[in-house]
C-alpha cells in the first residue's frame, strides 16, 4: 500500500509513518519493556552483585559475576541444589502423571461421546477449574487433614482404621493435589487435537489389521503430539513455578524453589541471592521447554498457534 502511495504522490515525501503499526505498537512496547524486559534485566543485574552493593564485585576470578550462582551450589548442606533438583524432578513426574490421567479422558471426550453428552462432560470438567487454585488446594486439605473427610469416613463411618491418620504432608498427597490442579491443562489441548482426527482414520487402521495398541501408537498419538507437547509445557511450568501446593500440601521436606525465592526476598532479605535463584529457575524451565520441543520435533510457534 505504501508503495502505491509513493507512486501516486511521489513529491510529497518518500517515507510515510505507518500509523497502523506505530499506534498499536506503543502500548505493546510500554507493556513489554516496563513490565517484562527491564524487570528481568534488573533481576539479572541484582543476581550478579554482592549483597548490599550496587556495583560489580571482584572477589576472585570465578566470583566476578557468578558469586550468587555458585554460592548455593558450594553451600555445604547443599540446600538449594537439593531443593532445585527436587522441584524439577517432581514437576516432571507431575507432568507425566497428568498426561497419563488426562489422555483417556480427552480420548473419551473426543472420540466416544457425541452431542449434548460431550458438552455436558466438557462443562463438568471445566467448572472446577474456574474456581481459584487457592480454594481448590484448600478443599483438598478438608479431605486429607487429620480431622478431614477421609479420616471421618475411614474411622467413624467405615471403621477401617482405629485412629485418624495424617494424609497431608507427604509425596502422595502432593501429587494427588498437583495432578488435580493441572490435569485440565492437559485434557483440553489433547481433546481439541483428537477432535480433528477422523473416525475413519482409526477405522482404516483397524481394517488394515492394527490392534488397539498399534492404532494408538501410529495413528492416534502422532496426531495429538503437538498438543501433548503444549500440555506438558503448561503443566511443567505450572508445577515448577507453583508456590501454594508445596507450601500447603507438601511436607517439611518438600521445599520448592519458589518458596526459597520468597524467603530470600521477603523474609530474610537477600535480593541478590533471591535474584540468582529466580534466574536459575527461569533458565532451567526455559531449557526444559526447549528440550521438550526438540525431543518432539516441534516449534514454539507451531505449538502455540495450534491451540
Amino acid at each position: 500500500m505504501t508503495a502505491q502511495d509513493s507512486i501516486t504522490t511521489p513529491r510529497k515525501r518518500k517515507f510515510k509513518v505507518p500509523w497502523a503499526i506505530v499506534l498499536p505498537a506503543i502500548p505493546l512496547f510500554l507493556w513489554l519493556s516496563l513490565l517484562i524486559v527491564f524487570p528481568h534485566i534488573r533481576l539479572a543485574i541484582l543476581s550478579f552483585l554482592k549483597r548490599g552493593q550496587d556495583i560489580f564485585f571482584l572477589d576472585n576470578f570465578l566470583n566476578i559475576f557468578l558469586g550468587n550462582y555458585l554460592a548455593p551450589f558450594q553451600d555445604p548442606d547443599q540446600l538449594f541444589s537439593r531443593v532445585f533438583f527436587k522441584t524439577v524432578l517432581f514437576s516432571l513426574v507431575n507432568t507425566l502423571l497428568s498426561l497419563i490421567v488426562a489422555y483417556p479422558i480427552a480420548f473419551y471426550l473426543a472420540k466416544v461421546l457425541k452431542g449434548s453428552r460431550k458438552f455436558a462432560l466438557l462443562l463438568l470438567l471445566i467448572l472446577p477449574y474456574w474456581v481459584s487454585e487457592l480454594v481448590r488446594v484448600y478443599a483438598w486439605m478438608n479431605i486429607l487433614r487429620e480431622t478431614g473427610f477421609l479420616n471421618y469416613l475411614l474411622v467413624n463411618v467405615l471403621g477401617i482404621f482405629d485412629q485418624p491418620v495424617e494424609f497431608l504432608y507427604n509425596n502422595t498427597s502432593l501429587f494427588v493435589v498437583f495432578v488435580y490442579s493441572s490435569v485440565l491443562l492437559m485434557i483440553l489441548p489433547i481433546y481439541s487435537s483428537l477432535e480433528g482426527l477422523a473416525d475413519e482414520q482409526i477405522q482404516a487402521a483397524e481394517d488394515l489389521g492394527a490392534g488397539p495398541f498399534a492404532t494408538f501408537r501410529y495413528v492416534v498419538f502422532p496426531i495429538s503430539l503437538p498438543s501433548v507437547t503444549y500440555g506438558c509445557i503448561l503443566v511443567f511450568m505450572i508445577s515448577a513455578g507453583n508456590y501454594l501446593i508445596p507450601n500447603l500440601i507438601g511436607g517439611k521436606n518438600t521445599l520448592w524453589v519458589t518458596e526459597m525465592i520468597y524467603n530470600r526476598f521477603i523474609i530474610s532479605t537477600n535480593w541478590n541471592l533471591g535474584s540468582a535463584y529466580s534466574l536459575i529457575l527461569l533458565i532451567s524451565t526455559s531449557i526444559m521447554i526447549y528440550l521438550g520441543l526438540r525431543l518432539t520435533g516441534q516449534s514454539l510457534r507451531g505449538v502455540f498457534s495450534e491451540q
Partner: peptide
Amino acid sequence: VIPGVILGVS
C-alpha cells in the same frame, strides 16, 4: 512461560 512468582519478583 515465565512463572508468576518470578514475574512478581522482577
